[in-house]
């Protein structure tokens, strides 16, 4: 055994450990949303017919577009990692930026979708909604909360990827060291996969 670990010496890098920490964090994020999926499942079971009617009021077209946007943004961030692995710094930055642009488009779509709902009087405590049966009140409550919390995760993911862009530009993420970018991308995939479950639950099951 050599005495390589003398106090004050340079810290060694452990990418496996860093990834492990991130995966554990992603588990806890999944369970956070898992709690809401439980609530959705229970209320869907209790009010099956009203959930079916309420779901018919959402526009599957916007949902589908947004699903495609998010899937594509996951693809570009994954390609950004491959690019940096090959040492193509500017390609990597371009791809990560594409992800950010797609994320903005997703949020803009979401904004119009929510505004439309609000304009026809469907929002928490609105007179219109309060006249509907309880199952529909629950459905739209969950719709706002779950897609809203997801949108907050999109924004957090954008901030994370923004930092990654800076790191790539500064060169602290590079060909030999890209675990940070991988972490950012993994978080982005989490945002993506949660949407993949939200989409059928709210838009497709009629």
């Amino acid at each position: 055994m050599t005495s390589k670990a003398v106090a004050g010496e340079h810290k060694h890098r452990d990418d496996v450990g860093s990834r492990m920490g991130l995966w554990l964090f992603l588990f806890s994020e999944l369970i956070l949303f898992g709690g809401m999926f439980i609530i959705y499942a229970v209320y869907r079971f209790m009010h099956a017919e009203e959930f079916r009617l309420a779901a018919a009021e959402l526009d599957p077209f916007i949902g589908t577009i947004n699903t495609m946007i998010l899937l594509t943004s996951s693809l570009t961030v994954a390609m950004s990692i491959t690019a940096i692995q090959q040492g193509k710094k500017y390609l990597s930055m371009a791809l990560a930026s594409t992800t950010l642009v797609l994320a903005v488009v997703f949020l803009v779509n979401k904004y119009f979708e929510w505004s439309h709902k609000i304009s026809i009087g469907i929002y928490p405590q609105s007179p219109e909604l309060m006249n509907k049966p309880q199952g529909e009140i629950l459905y739209f409550g969950l719709y706002y909360v779950m897609t809203g919390l997801h949108a907050i995760h999109v924004i957090i993911g954008m901030a994370v990827l923004g930092f990654m862009l800076v790191f790539i530009a500064k060169g602290s993420i590079n060909r030999g060291s890209f675990v940070k970018l991988e972490a950012g991308a993994l978080y982005w995939h989490l945002v993506d996969i949660i949407w993949i479950f939200l989409f059928p639950l709210f838009y497709l099951i009629h």
Binding site: L24, F27, S28, I31, L32, F33, G34, G35, M36
Partner: peptide, 9 residues
């Protein structure tokens, strides 16, 4: 890790 998020949400 696995139980706390539930009370969080």
């Amino acid at each position: 890790i696995l139980a706390t998020p539930i009370i969080g949400i």
